[in-house]
Amino acid sequence: MIIQFALSAVFLGALVWTWRRFRQQALRRLEAFVWSALWLAAGVAVWWPNVTTRLANLVGIGRGSDFVLYIAVTVLTVLVLHLHVAHDKLSREFTELVRHDALKDVDRS
C-alpha cells in the first residue's frame, strides 16, 4: 500500500511537471500528451498490476512486475553501454589534444 501511494505521488508530480513545461513552451502539446500517457500508464500498472501481468503473459513471462523489471534492466543496460561508448570516444579525442600539445616542440634535429 505504502509503495503504491509513494509511486502515485511521484507520477502525479511528473504529470504536473510535464504540463508546467508545456505552459513554459519547453514541450510541444503532442510531447506533453505522450509523457502524460506514460505517467498514467505507470499509475495504472501500480494500482492494477493485473494489467501488466496480462501483458507479461502475452510474451510468456509469469508476473507483471517481472515484465516491468526485465524491460527496465534491458533499457538500463543499453543506456549504460551507450554511455561507455560515448565516454570512450570523448577520451580518445582528449588524448589527441594532449598528444598534439606534447608534440608541438618536436622537430627533426
Binding site: F94, T95, R99, D101
Partner: peptide
C-alpha cells in the same frame, strides 16, 4: 615529452 594529463 610531456602529456599535460595522464593518458595511459
Amino acid at each position: 615529452l610531456r602529456h599535460a594529463v595522464n593518458r595511459g
